[in-house]
Design a protein around this nucleic acid. Structure first.
Length: 313
RNA sequence: CGCGGGGUAGAGCAGUUUGGUAGCUCGUCGGGCUCAUAACCCGGAGGUCGUGGGUUCAAGUCCCACCCCCGCAA
């Protein structure tokens, strides 16, 4: 079976790898164009492109799939297309190319968390379980018929990063299963229940801002959901204090949310929230690298009793 | 050549402007005190100050080059 794969970030890599290792023939890979990234503005290729090149698979990087991607795709004559976090919306022209359709690997238990950032939203929403769904792509965004599903609990220590790694792996296996069952004609197919569906926007940097007026649990979820990108942060004087890891702590009855309750090299850095307090365990000051808050306090004094946003360092 | 910050003991920082004995907090090791310690007291070890050149009687500090780390912007 001739398969064309479309994907871009790390999440897509295990699925492509699984296809390469499978009996299916990966005849081409579509991925986002190389873009300037990181310090110095050097252009970098996507993780998917790196893997594809390593296996001498033809790589295509159309700016817009429906424009300059359509012809190359037709020429590849795929039986089926597989997408996983490709990053482009496929128009009907594109979906019409493979006779067996386009199967998408989506990192949520659909119909919950449609959209580009399902993993972050699962954590942000406090979901107890997350998962992967394979589905046929249609014209809408993650609205197509569902095929197979796989669940996993969201652990208290999970971040978007760790959960994404797990789901990527699960998704890869699930996809191979799905293709097998499609070939065998045994794959279940189920419409999504629109009433249960949620569509979540993509993550913006500003969504990392911690609001201590929210309860401890919501703040902790935000810390986990925004790691490793964009990373949760709190206002600290002129700059921002990134918060990589945090946990619940004992509060103080009438403290204003955002108050520094403790800033002690033994006890750590503890900030009041609306319904308690949270310890900022691993932090990162401007221009500094991430470190244990207790280590940070060895070299920096933070005044207890002030609002974190008014502290000078 | 996108903009900026940084590399000093195991950790986190000061010292660099104005060159002149390597400093703080913590950890660590040894000793003491205490019913007890996230407590306190005494003592010790631990540094080619990122790398290589240069200037100087003298460089962590000034000059040049390079390496590595980080933030912003994309």
């Amino acid at each position: 079976m001739r398969v064309v794969f479309m994907g871009t970030p790390d999440f897509s890599v295990p699925t492509l790898q699984a296809l390469i290792d499978s009996p299916y023939e990966v005849v081409g890979v579509f991925t986002q164009p190389d873009r300037p990234k990181g310090r110095g503005g050097k252009v970098q290729m996507s993780p998917v492109k790196e893997l594809a090149l390593k296996h001498d698979i033809p790589v295509f990087q159309p700016l817009k799939m429906r424009l300059d991607g359509l012809e190359p795709l037709r020429e590849l004559k795929p039986d089926i297309c597989v997408t996983a976090a490709f990053g482009q919306i496929l128009s009907q022209d594109v979906l019409d190319v493979p006779p067996m359709g386009t199967v998408n690997v989506h990192a949520s238990l659909l119909p919950r968390h449609r959209g580009a950032a399902p993993i972050q939203w699962a954590i942000l929403s406090g979901d107890a379980t997350a998962g992967v769904t394979t589905m046929y792509s249609d014209k809408g965004i993650d609205t197509g018929d569902m095929l197979l599903k796989c669940e996993t609990p969201v652990l208290p220590e999970d971040t978007a990063g760790t959960l994404s790694d797990k789901l990527a792996q699960m998704g890869a296996e699930l996809l191979i299963d799905t293709l097998r069952q499609i070939e065998a004609g045994t794959c279940p197919r189920e419409k999504q229940d629109e009433a249960q569906s949620t569509y979540d926007p993509k993550i913006e940097k500003e969504m990392g801002l911690l609001n201590f007026e929210e309860g401890t649990e919501k703040c902790l979820n935000r810390v986990r959901a925004m790691s490793p990108w964009p990373c949760a942060y709190a206002q600290l004087g002129e700059g921002v204090l990134k918060v990589w890891r945090a946990k619940a702590a004992e509060g103080c009855a009438n403290a204003i949310p955002g108050t520094v309750l403790k800033a002690d090299r033994k006890l750590g850095l503890i900030v009041a929230t609306a319904d308690g307090a949270m310890e900022l365990c691993e932090i990162q000051a401007p221009n500094a690298k991430r470190m244990d808050a207790k280590a940070f306090l060895l070299g920096h004094a933070i005044e207890e009793g002030k609002l974190l946003s008014e502290v000078r360092i």
